[in-house]
C-alpha cells in the first residue's frame, strides 16, 4: 500500500515536471482538428456530421504518441531493473503508469473536445455521449498502447503504432457510433465499451507484464 502511494506520487511528479508530456498531445490534437475543415469543407452541416469520427481519430492519434513511450524512460534509465530487484508487483506498476499517463494526456484532450461544439459544430445535445464514450474509450486505448509500447520497447515507434492501431479499431467504431447516434442506442454502445474495458484490462495487463519481461532475458 505504501508502495502504491509512493509510486503513484512519483509518477505524478515526473509528469507534472515535464510539461511537454501534457502539451504535445494537445497541440497535435488541435492541429489535426484544425486541418480537417481546411482540407475537407467548411460547411457546418457536413462538419457536424463528420465531427464525432474526426474527434475520435484525432484523439486516438494524439494519445498514441504519448502512450507508446510509457515504459521507455524507465527501461532506458534502469528504473525497471530496480522494480525487479525489489520484487514490486509489476501489475501495480503497469496499472499505475497507465492510469497516470491517462490523467495527464487523455484527460486534457477529453476536456478540450468540448470545444468542438464551436470548432466542428458538434451537436450540443450529444456532447455528453461524446464525453462519456471518450472517458471509457481512451482508457481502453491506453491499455492497447501500453502493450504496443511494451512489446516494441527500445524499437521504433512506427512499429508500436502498427500494433496499437488495429487493436484499437473496435473502440474507435463503438466510440464514434456512441457519439453519432440518437439517444436510445447510446446505452447500448456505452455498455459495449464498458464490457470491452472490463474484458481487455486483465488480458492486456497480463500481456503487458509479459511483454516487459521479454526485454529482461
Amino acid at each position: 500500500m505504501i508502495f502504491l502511494k509512493s509510486f503513484f506520487s512519483r509518477e505524478v511528479l515526473i509528469y507534472s515536471k515535464k510539461s511537454s508530456n501534457v502539451i504535445s498531445p494537445v497541440i497535435f490534437f488541435l492541429i489535426c482538428i484544425a486541418f480537417f475543415p481546411l482540407a475537407i469543407s467548411n460547411d457546418p452541416k457536413e462538419l457536424s456530421r463528420l465531427a464525432p469520427g474526426l474527434i475520435w481519430i484525432c484523439i486516438l492519434l494524439a494519445g498514441m504518441l504519448s502512450i507508446q513511450t510509457i515504459f521507455k524512460e524507465d527501461y532506458d534509465d534502469g528504473s525497471l531493473d530496480l522494480f525487479y530487484v525489489r520484487r514490486f508487483s509489476m501489475l501495480q506498476v503497469v496499472l499505475i503508469k497507465i492510469f497516470v499517463n491517462w490523467i495527464f494526456t487523455a484527460l486534457p484532450l477529453i476536456l478540450l473536445s468540448c470545444s468542438m461544439v464551436f470548432l466542428l459544430y458538434f451537436p450540443l445535445e450529444k456532447l455528453l455521449n461524446l464525453i462519456g464514450s471518450l472517458f471509457i474509450g481512451t482508457l481502453i486505448i491506453s491499455f492497447f498502447g501500453a502493450l504496443a509500447g511494451a512489446l516494441s520497447l527500445g524499437r521504433n515507434s512506427i512499429l508500436a503504432s502498427a500494433i496499437m492501431l488495429p487493436l484499437s479499431l473496435p473502440v474507435l467504431i463503438l466510440g464514434s457510433s456512441a457519439s453519432t447516434y440518437s439517444s436510445e442506442n447510446i446505452t447500448f454502445f456505452i455498455l459495449l465499451l464498458l464490457a470491452l474495458l472490463f474484458f481487455s484490462v486483465p488480458i492486456i495487463s497480463i500481456a503487458c507484464i509479459g511483454a516487459i519481461r521479454l526485454h529482461y532475458e
Binding site: 473496435p170 463503438l174 492486456i204
Partner: peptide
C-alpha cells in the same frame, strides 16, 4: 503474445463492424 491478443481481438472487430 501479439498473436494471442490479436486472435482475441479479431472476433470483436468483426462484431463491432
Amino acid at each position: 503474445i501479439l498473436a494471442m491478443v490479436g486472435a482475441v481481438n479479431l472476433p470483436i472487430i468483426k462484431k463491432s463492424v
